[in-house]
């Protein structure tokens, strides 16, 4: 796992705006945290292997290479609704983000793409930050099934997750497909609405 010790990390920092011009859904990982991660300014289409990495940025430290869990501070993902932010985190290789709190839209976007945001108590997050910085190869185990995060010392922290979201994640369900099972109900609602508030359908 990798620790990113900052509060209020916004979606502009997670994936800067110039990369939002893409009409694709993939390939954002190489520009995750672009302005912090590289010393030069990044633009779409640049070969990132030719760019200078910022040695001070935590994700560039060899010990955090290949991390699948990101640890951050409060209000992670604040700002815009761009789903490019969770796409970039996922494309980089993260599967779980742990923080004391998340911004609402970001939180909901994560579930839609199969990235798991976990809220843990500030004190626990604080402790994990201390532990990870002082321990090489620090590794957390996350079980969505059991809703637990287990530290190397064997401490087990539980987390909450909506049943429906958990169900969708564990079973890889297509939410649109699930909603369309209610197509008749949607049509009935729509017809009633058309009668009662016809100006909405003008």
């Amino acid at each position: 796992m990798a620790p990113l010790d900052r509060a209020n990390i916004d979606t502009d920092a997670i994936i800067p705006k110039q990369f939002l011009k893409s009409i694709k859904r993939s390939g954002f990982g190489q520009n995750l945290f672009d302005e912090w991660r590289y010393l030069d300014h990044g633009e779409p289409g640049m070969d990132v292997t030719q760019r200078r990495l910022n040695p001070d940025f935590v994700l560039n430290q060899p010990r955090y290479r290949g991390a699948q869990i990101l640890l951050a501070r409060a209000n992670f993902g604040c700002g815009s609704s761009r789903e490019h932010a969770p796409w970039a985190l996922q494309d980089y290789g993260f599967r779980v983000i742990i923080a004391p709190s998340f911004a609402d839209i970001f939180f909901s976007n994560c579930f839609k793409i199969g990235l798991l945001p976990i809220v843990l108590d500030t004190n626990i997050v604080d402790r994990i930050f201390h532990e990870v910085s002082s321990t090489e190869d620090y590794c957390l185990t996350v079980s969505l099934e059991n809703q637990t995060v287990t530290t190397p010392s064997g401490e087990v922290c539980t987390f909450d997750v909506d049943m429906f979201r958990k169900h969708c994640l564990l079973n890889g369900l297509d939410e649109i497909g699930l909603t369309l099972q209610y197509a008749d109900k949607i049509k009935a609602f729509e017809e009633k609405r058309r009668t009662e508030q016809p100006w909405l359908f003008a």
Binding site: I105, E175, L180, Y182
Partner: peptide
């Protein structure tokens, strides 16, 4: 009125609905 992500944009396009938890 509220902002949504791209998956939700697709969801609204396809179903005219969103699955939401009340705030």
């Amino acid at each position: 009125a509220f902002g949504i992500g791209t998956s939700e944009v697709e969801h609204v396009l396809a179903t005219q609905c969103l699955l939401l938890k009340k705030a």
